[in-house]
Every structure is written in C-alpha cells, then in structure tokens.
Simulated assay, not measured.
Amino acid sequence: MKKCEFSETQFSFCFTFEYITRFYPFVPLPIFPNTYWEGKKGGGYDVKIKGNIFFQFKIPTYHDSVYRPYWDVFGHDYYKMKLDTNGKQYELLKALVRPFNKVYYSVPEFHTITELYFNYSKSSIESNSGIFALNYLPAYGSGKHHLIFSPRHNWANVFSDPYRIDKVQNINPYEIFAENDNLEITIYSQALQLRSLLLEDVENSELLEESKDPQTLVKSVHSLLLAKYNVHWYPIIDF
C-alpha cells in the first residue's frame, strides 16, 4: 500500500481550478465553505458550483500486487477509498442528493507528486480522476465500506456488499443550470433576462437569435455586452 504524495487540499485546488477554467467565464466562482458551515445542514461538501454542483474530494491509497489477494477486483493494481456511511459528513452529503442537485466524490487516479504536476500542467486532472455520484453509493448509516477503482476501467466496486457503479464521465454545468426554472437564479436565466433587455435595441436582434442551447445563448450575450457596450458580464454568486 502506498499513500498519495500530495494532500487533499492540493488535489482539490487543482481539480477545481481546472474545472472552473474549462467553463470560464460562464460559470460563477466556486464557493468553499469554512469549517463551521461545512458541518452544518446544507454542508458536507468541499466546493459548490452555483448551488447545483457539489464536490467532496478524497485521497485514496494505492495498492499493488501485495494486497491483491484481498481485493482482487481487476487482476492488477488499484486504488481504494474508505466510505464511513455513519459519519456526519456522509449524512450531510446524502441529504444534498435531491432533484436538480449533483453531488459527487472526486478522487485522483494517480498518487505521485510528479503525476500531479504533469496533469496540472496539461489540464488533465479531471480526466485522470474518479468521479462518483453520491446517489449510487451506499445509504447513510449502512456501516463502513470500501470503494475499489482503477484508471483502466470506467466502473468501480463497492464492498463489503459488492456491487458495481459507473464513474461519471462528464459534468456539464450548462445542462444542469438549465434543468429547472424554479432554481434561484441560474446563468441561463440571467442570460435570458439580459437578452430581453438587449433586444429593446432593434440593432441587436440579428446578433441575439433565439437559441434553445444554453451555452450558445450565454456566449452570445457575453460577447455582445463586451463588444458593443464594453460590459464584462460575470454571473452573480449566491450564498
């Protein structure tokens, strides 16, 4: 067994920075709760993206052939993460799992500092991480479990009552933010409101053709505000 050569804080920063950069400027800044709010109702996560996407970061242990007889899931080396479903944090994370929320564990599928530096420089932290949706993990209060996974496979096994879960391959905030009009204020709904205001100037009508694709609309509004009005639109951060 080998421990990761980097900390959870290092990994969480690299992952979050890369994720936000990939969708910038159409995703608001991430919210990192302090230790007080992290343990309160509505907490349990490490970072929140606008109120719909929650990430909790974990650091696994690396296991080579020495430990394979005990957890021989893949027939080769693997990573293992402990799940204490009786803990307060797990209870809070499970409570966040409800319609239009996306709650995930994110764990690295590498363990050396060299790999961290390399993936960070290549913007490949997210693609070399295991992302697991909380709604498919064991129920709160079901005891201690282990999640066994490998970068060579797009699924993992949960023990002690073995069952397989798939890794999450893509988390697109455009789709999540546009799913429900009843959410407080989404990036998409802000873009719709701005579009309505901008269309009061008839010269903008051709530049803001109606689109059902949230990403296209957000980009169009952002570009027009910047190019014609020299206005930098950055979505509101809600607390």
Rank of each mutant, 00 (worst) to 15 (best):
M1W: 04
K2F: 15
K3N: 13
C4M: 05
C4Q: 04
E5Y: 07
F6H: 08
S7V: 02
T9K: 13
S12R: 05
C14G: 05
E18M: 04
Y19V: 06
Y19P: 02
Y24A: 15
P25V: 13
L29M: 11
I31G: 02
I31Q: 11
I31D: 07
P33G: 04
N34C: 05
Y36D: 11
E38G: 11
G39I: 01
G39D: 07
K41A: 14
K41V: 10
G42Q: 01
G43P: 00
Y45A: 01
K48R: 07
G51T: 02
I53C: 01
F55C: 06
Q56P: 00
K58S: 08
Y62K: 10
S65T: 09
V66F: 09
P69R: 09
Y70F: 15
Y70W: 14
W71Y: 15
W71M: 08
V73D: 02
F74T: 10
G75C: 05
Y78G: 03
Y79P: 01
K80Y: 03
T85L: 00
N86V: 08
L92A: 02
R98I: 12
Y104E: 08
Y105H: 07
Y105P: 00
S106N: 03
P108W: 05
E109H: 06
H111K: 03
H111W: 14
T112G: 04
E115Q: 15
Y117D: 14
Y117E: 15
Y120V: 10
K122T: 15
S124N: 11
S129F: 03
S129K: 01
S129L: 03
G130P: 00
I131Q: 03
F132S: 10
F132V: 07
Y136H: 15
Y136N: 15
A139C: 03
G141H: 04
G143M: 02
H145Y: 07
H146C: 05
I148P: 01
S150C: 14
S150A: 06
R152S: 14
N157T: 13
N157H: 09
F159R: 08
R164P: 00
R164Y: 04
R164W: 06
I165N: 05
I165P: 01
D166G: 10
D166A: 14
K167E: 11
K167H: 14
Q169I: 07
N170W: 09
N170L: 07
I171K: 05
N172Y: 06
P173I: 06
Y174T: 09
E175Q: 13
I176D: 02
F177N: 10
D181W: 09
L183H: 10
L183W: 14
E184A: 13
E184F: 12
I187Q: 12
I187M: 11
Y188E: 03
Y188S: 09
S189M: 06
S189W: 02
Q190M: 11
A191H: 07
Q193Y: 09
L194K: 13
L199W: 06
L199G: 08
V202A: 12
V202E: 12
E203C: 09
E203A: 13
S205D: 12
L207G: 05
L207K: 15
L208T: 13
E210P: 00
E210S: 14
D213C: 10
P214C: 05
Q215T: 08
L217E: 04
V218M: 11
K219E: 15
V221D: 05
V221E: 04
S223K: 11
S223W: 04
L224E: 06
L226W: 12
K228N: 12
H232L: 13
H232Q: 07
W233I: 03
Y234V: 12
I236E: 10
I237K: 08
